[in-house]
């Protein structure tokens, strides 16, 4: 079992990076929304799925993968804005269970809605021609498209970081996640900030869906599977912690990839084992602040 060439392990780590990248894009939005709004967004997976479907249709309309890559997350993010403004906003100040139930119901409705609009049978999206080949990395052949996914993920994270750290709106978001009452006392309209944050989080889920489509295909149930893993990532990383979402997301991608290599049967369970251990040793998660999720 341990007689494994180093190159195979490196290849496995590289593969895990892509799995982790998609999880990070998903988990960071989930964590952002929870951290600021204490909304556990169960519909996050459904927006990921919607991203892939919207990309399928936009690709048909625009014939351009690059336009789709930019437009589809915007479309999904805009839908996110509407959901916050029309549905979730009514539930602020009530028990955190209420938005959880609302978004859970929303996710079921979205899955059925997508089946009505696009059909029950899954769809296929191709990566653009420039990205569809494999490149020899020395230790393995690696799909160019997956390298591209790593790059887009990194770029999206850097953009988000710059936005949160270097802009005034980012400053208010950070302040709001620490002490919403104080920010309101300073006369700032947090409702608009929450609207924006929800839209950004949902847009990132949409982006993850757009990126995943050409790798995994587009099907109505795709969000149901990933949402569980994303919750695991958020819990392991620490609810509300962005750094936690990144580290835990990449960690989970690597753990799944390496477990698949050594013991594929365990790959499905191992993420939950890790979550259980983290919860026992550090109940607030790797980067979480104690008390935030209580």
């Amino acid at each position: 079992m341990f007689d494994v060439p180093l190159s195979a392990l490196v290849a496995q780590v590289f593969t895990g990076l892509v799995l982790g990248g998609i999880l990070v894009l998903m988990a960071i939005g989930l964590s952002l929304i929870f951290g600021l709004m204490t909304v556990v967004n169960f519909a996050h997976g459904a927006f990921y799925m919607l991203g892939a479907y919207v990309a399928f249709s936009l690709l048909g309309l625009t014939k351009s993968f690059w336009a789709t890559l930019v437009l589809a997350p915007l479309v999904v993010g805009t839908l996110g804005l509407l959901v916050e403004r029309l549905l979730i906003r009514r539930l602020y100040g009530r028990s955190p269970d209420d938005p959880l139930l609302l978004t859970f119901g929303l996710s079921l409705a979205m899955v059925e809605g997508v089946k009505l609009l696009w059909g029950k049978i899954g769809l296929t999206v191709d990566p653009p021609k420039q990205l569809s080949s494999a490149v020899d990395l020395g230790f393995m052949n690696f799909p160019v498209y997956r390298l591209f996914v790593i790059a887009v993920t990194a770029a999206a994270l850097v953009a988000l970081w710059l936005f949160l750290e270097k802009t005034n709106v980012g400053l208010i978001i950070r302040a709001g996640s620490r002490d919403a009452l104080m920010v309101r006392a300073l006369g700032l309209d947090l409702n608009r900030i929450w609207l924006l944050v929800f839209g950004i989080g949902i847009g990132m889920a949409g982006l993850a869906g757009v990126l995943a489509g050409p790798m995994r295909g587009v099907y109505a149930e795709m969000g149901v599977e990933i949402i569980i893993e994303c919750f695991v990532v958020v819990v392991v990383g620490g609810m509300g912690s962005l750094a936690g979402a990144i580290v835990a997301g990449l960690l989970m991608g690597e753990i799944v990839s390496l477990t698949t290599f050594f013991a594929p049967k365990l790959a499905e369970i191992v993420v939950f084992v890790v979550m259980a251990v983290v919860l026992l040793v550090r109940p607030s998660g790797l980067f979480g602040e104690a008390g935030l999720a209580e």
Binding site: P5, S7, A8, A11, Q12, T15, G16, V18, L19, M140, N141, R146, M215, R216, G217, E221, E225, V256, S257, T260, F261, P264, K265, A267, E268
Partner: peptide, 20 residues
């Protein structure tokens, strides 16, 4: 032989091993 969960079409983690 490598098992994967039905309906979860992400195979990348299996492929380097097969290739090797």
């Amino acid at each position: 032989s490598t098992p994967y969960p039905l309906g979860k079409p992400e195979f990348s983690a299996h492929l380097p091993k097969i290739q090797a």
